[in-house]
Design a protein around this nucleic acid. Structure first.
Lengths: 345, 345
DNA sequence: GCGATTAGGACAAACGATTGTTCCAGGGTA
DNA sequence: TACCCTGGAACAATCGTTTGTCCTAATCGC
């Protein structure tokens, strides 16, 4: 019932008390004593403000202070659990600090990403957490040169002076690949994501490093796919299954790709891991309950969101750009990788 | 390189041209002809604006127009795929109309939800899409009486004059229950969500209706749990398995609850569906690939997000409050429900 | 040649909050 | 009495846009 038809303004409160907005603002801003507003007046102001359920218009406040207490968040696809988890922790950490989140979903499209950046900047956000789509980086170079506070999450651009927090993708992929190699796999297919992205390059690099290190030749025909989406994993796996190239294992570079692979494997009535082994990037709450519980490379995406916001504040408080924070991954061992006899490979 | 250190303002553009902000504003606002600004001037303005990469300060604009082109979105948990999907479609539909999203995650806590509503309102959003936690509704009554445009998603409050879009939960639950009954199940456990919520009441009601309609007595001991979270499903299932009450099937009222049930069943080394059958609300991309592909009640949550935004605009354009839009659910039949002999029940 | 249009923009207020400065009255001091 | 100080609060500018109104030439009609 206290919800007013038209929002209470500072002026309205002041008029009802026979004061000016100045005085009311100072009292509510906690500067009453500093400006020698009498205790009696302060009490009256606070009481009426509470009664009218007054809360200052953040738009006007933002204009005056050029500070909006808002953080922009751009993700390629908020319905992807991976990004949703990051978003969850970004919002939580932001709220803890009294900040709100302006969310944009770039729909995995760089054009929308550029649009979103402009949109968000024209709203004068105090900081920006960006999970780039990862195809092009010209717009990011512009961003780096601007005065906008930015932290990149999930994908990093070594050439740009932008703070970032990502998984140690090279190592994650290498460990997963080595795990398979130790179990006797030599023909390991790599279902990669967007080829242009640094994220993908790192994971593929880790994969290749592991192979090379164990004296296994890299077969380009086993490196397939070109998107982090389910569709890509599906198509790549089906093509692979019908191609000459034989393989005993799959390393899927994202949860969605893994889902696509699962779909293809299931349609071909193959069995995991007896027919084909698999490890996927990104853990999922469903992973333990799959037909074959899936071994995964778990990223610390909860922390990523949180850390991203922390970096934003670290940067804005002291001018200490903190570059490329790398988070370790963890291999969660389940049952989707078979041990095979060396001669099988 | 056009990214300015300090944002270009309307005044700056005007000064460089020897004009006033008025003129520049009118030209860029498309009202040049209407106010008889010469074509030459209009061209000059547009050229410089483009060159300086000018875009109006949305904060100032919002203040002047008392319209922020922003929609508030409050969800209980953005990392839950169900809400993440809704959010995805809300943002997409909003973007299509030139609106941005201010996101809040209430963390399934009514206190945070109330905070979020205040926060969002103090930012003068033009509309609010709210997925309520569902415990209390006093704050929603206040909201209903205010001039704030609101659409409720996922949970509805029949007593309140607020537009909403939800699944036909009664029918969804009834159909799922009937499906099990047709397969010979009579002792069906109901893993409910938050008891206080209308959402849960509806689903439980549908469950009970189906039983009653088929002459099966309702056993209160089979209706367990009190949260939509995984933990609740887990605990409820374990307790149920160790209790006297025998049952052959489970109806889980959310994806998270189902996950908890899966966990419990797995820990008890039981088999789905031979030991226990299960149907879960909310479909998941993983559902087909589970140890036993799971039969689910699929909600049209993609459309929910989209429709929510559409309702918001329908309401704000013509004063036609559209009440309680109900979306049908669909039973996706997989393998998690066994047909049992009547005497087993 | 004189008033009336018209073209082309400028002026100034307003949105709501914040803040550096100023104003006023009363009390104490010299 | 003249002066200063201090408590208490008001004044007014400002953030960047938008918009109703007003101003000033030049042009037109007759």
């Amino acid at each position: 019932m206290n919800a007013p038809k038209s929002k209470t303004t500072l002026k309205a409160v002041a008029e009802q008390l026979g004061l000016t907005p100045t005085t009311v603002s100072r009292v509510l801003g906690g500067k009453g004593d500093q400006y020698r507003i009498s205790q009696k007046t302060q009490r009256r102001v606070r009481e009426l403000a509470a009664k009218l359920n007054f809360s200052p218009n953040q738009i006007a406040r933002g204009l005056r202070l050029s500070k909006t207490s808002t953080i922009g968040l751009i993700v390629p696809d908020i319905s992807n659990p991976y990004f949703a988890t990051i978003a969850h922790h970004v919002t939580a950490e932001a709220r803890r600090r009294g900040y709100s989140i302006l969310l944009c979903d770039s729909q995995e499209d760089t054009r929308y990403e550029i649009e979103a950046i402009q949109l968000i900047r024209s709203r004068n956000v105090d900081g920006l957490v960006l999970c780039p789509v990862g195809v092009s980086d010209e717009h990011l170079a512009e961003l780096a040169e601007s005065d906008q506070q930015v932290v990149l999450v999930d994908r990093t651009y070594p050439d740009l002076a932008i703070a970032s927090v990502t998984s140690d993708n090279v190592r994650g992929a290498r460990e997963a690949t080595e795990y398979m190699i130790r179990r006797g796999h030599k023909r390991i297919a790599c279902l990669q994501g967007l080829q242009a992205s640094a994220l993908n390059r790192d994971r593929v690099l880790g994969y290749q490093e592991a192979l090379t290190q164990h004296g296994i030749p890299i077969d380009e025909e086993l490196i397939v796919g070109d998107s982090f989406a389910q569709q890509s994993g599906y198509v790549a796996t089906r093509l692979l299954l019908h191609a000459q190239a034989k393989f005993t294992a799959i390393l899927a570079m994202s949860n969605q790709i893994a889902l696509g692979a699962l779909q293809a494997v299931s349609e071909e009535s193959l069995n995991i891991p007896s027919d084909v082994s698999i490890i996927a990037f990104d853990d999922s709450p469903y992973a333990p309950y799959l037909a074959t519980p899936m071994t995964t490379v778990k990223q610390r995406n909860e922390e990523m969101g949180q850390i991203a916001v922390q970096l934003l504040f670290a940067r804005s408080e002291s001018q200490r750009p903190f570059h490329g924070l790398l988070l370790p991954t963890r291999l969660i061992e389940r049952d989707s990788v078979a041990s095979i006899r060396p001669e099988d490979s």
